[in-house]
């Protein structure tokens, strides 16, 4: 660039020098110089316009980029907040489900759940008619006296402990629920009458051998009466529940702390 400027200065000097006026090349050089200057001006204008275009495009790109970044950020936050709401809803749903199927005191299944489960087991019975299904109703003996003597808090403590013992001593495919105040229902799938008797007798022994603690630290003992029944067909299930209920009543009537009906040939083996 510096060379070009020097050359222009030299040429302007030569053109202005009176010694070269009238020389045949003087006019041609003068015209050439003018054309050269025109082209240079045009080139500068084009460069300037191109620069401005580039600048505008760059700015446009930057604003797109900023808007994109902003929207991306907003979207990320939206997803995060929405996910957390869903987590809250899911936990809430779990809590409600637990409340709708479980007894709050003992943590066992509640009556509503057991009724539904009974219905489901009945449907299964229809599919496996070769298998026996047993139900057990168990009731704490003289529970009213426990409440009256030691207070309701102790009564609740006894219910909780009984529930715990039941859960610890049933098989993993058996289902245990709180059926009423001090009454428990057991569903024993694929279980014969003899096996149901053994389950009941074992629970009866465990419950009567347990030392219960009242809320004031006093120790007390309780016993339970058991009634059970078994069936093979769906239509008998309701009847079997009634059978277990009357068997329980029978166990109460004949002295409590017992399983009814007794299976005579099983008694010796326990």
């Amino acid at each position: 660039m510096a060379d070009m400027q020097e050359l222009e200065v030299d040429i302007d000097g030569l053109l202005a020098d009176p010694a070269w006026q009238g020389h045949p090349l003087h006019h041609a050089l003068g015209v050439l110089m003018e054309r050269h200057r025109d082209l240079l001006r045009q080139l500068e204008r084009i460069t300037h316009i191109a620069d401005r275009y580039q600048g505008a495009e760059h700015e446009r790109g930057m604003s797109y980029c900023q808007r994109y970044e902003k929207q991306l950020h907003q979207l990320e936050r939206l997803l995060r907040i929405s996910d957390r709401y869903q987590q809250i809803m899911r936990r809430q749903h779990e809590e409600l489900r637990q409340q709708s199927t479980h007894d709050p005191l003992t943590g066992l299944y509640n009556r509503r759940y057991m009724q539904r489960r009974l219905h489901e087991e009945a449907l299964k019975l229809g599919r496996h008619q070769d298998q026996l299904f047993s139900v057990v109703l168990a009731d704490i003996d003289h529970f009213k006296a426990v409440n009256d003597t030691f207070g309701h808090n102790t009564g609740d403590a006894v219910l909780m402990e009984v529930a715990r013992r039941f859960v610890l001593n049933i098989r993993k495919y058996d289902v245990c629920g709180r059926w009423g105040g001090e009454e428990f229902l057991l569903l024993l799938p694929s279980t014969t009458e003899a096996q149901a008797y053994r389950v009941c007798e074992n629970l009866r022994r465990v419950i009567s051998e347990t030392q219960y603690r009242g809320t004031d630290g006093q120790s007390l003992a309780v016993s339970m009466s058991f009634g059970y029944g078994s069936c093979r067909a769906v239509e008998d299930l309701e009847n079997t529940l009634k059978k277990a209920d009357s068997a329980l009543y029978d166990a109460k009537r004949t002295g409590r702390n017992r399983v009814s009906p007794v299976i005579e040939d099983e008694v010796g083996t326990i």
């Binding site: 907040i81 957390r84 809250i88």
Partner: peptide, 13 residues
């Protein structure tokens, strides 16, 4: 209490 955590998320910007 969990709603408070969400409100905090909103507050961020």
């Amino acid at each position: 209490e969990r709603v408070a955590e969400l409100a905090e998320e909103f507050r961020e910007d």
